[in-house]
Simulated scan of single mutants.
Amino acid sequence: MIRPILSGLAAGLLLVGCATVADNVTTHAAHDYPEARSYDVSENAMADVDAALSRAVASDKRVMIVMGANWCHDSRALAGWLGTDRFAALIDAKYELVFVNVGMPQSGDGHNIAIAQRFGLDALPGTPNVLIVTADGTLINADTATTWRDAASREEDAIYDELVSLAN
Rank of each mutant, 00 (worst) to 15 (best):
M1Q: 10
M1E: 12
I2S: 14
I2G: 10
R3S: 11
R3V: 11
G8V: 02
A10P: 09
A11Q: 08
A11D: 10
G12T: 10
L13H: 03
L13S: 04
V16H: 04
C18Y: 12
A19R: 10
A22R: 10
T26V: 10
D32S: 15
P34K: 05
A36W: 05
E43D: 15
A45M: 03
M46Y: 07
A47M: 07
D50F: 08
D50A: 15
D50S: 14
A52Q: 01
A52H: 04
A52I: 01
A56Y: 08
D60A: 14
R62W: 06
R62C: 12
V63L: 02
V63M: 02
W71P: 06
W71R: 10
H73P: 14
S75F: 04
R76N: 09
A77T: 04
A77D: 05
A77E: 06
L78S: 02
W81G: 10
L82N: 13
L82T: 08
D85R: 14
F87P: 04
L90M: 14
I91Y: 00
D92P: 00
K94E: 15
K94W: 01
Y95N: 00
E96Y: 05
E96Q: 15
L97R: 00
L97P: 01
V98Y: 01
V100M: 11
M104R: 15
M104D: 13
P105N: 05
S107Q: 13
D109F: 13
H111C: 08
N112V: 02
N112R: 02
A114T: 07
A116F: 09
Q117S: 06
Q117K: 13
R118A: 11
G120C: 14
G120M: 12
L121G: 03
L124C: 03
L124S: 03
P128E: 12
L131Q: 10
L131Y: 06
T134A: 04
T134P: 00
T134H: 01
A135M: 09
D136Y: 00
D136E: 11
T138A: 15
I140D: 10
I140Y: 10
N141Y: 02
D143R: 03
T144D: 02
T144E: 02
T146Y: 02
T147V: 04
R149Y: 08
A151D: 08
A151M: 08
A151P: 03
A151Y: 05
A152D: 11
A152I: 05
A152R: 09
S153I: 00
E155P: 01
E155M: 04
E156Q: 14
E156N: 12
D157K: 11
I159N: 03
E162C: 01
L163K: 03
V164G: 05
V164Q: 07
V164A: 05
S165P: 05
L166F: 04
A167L: 06
N168K: 11
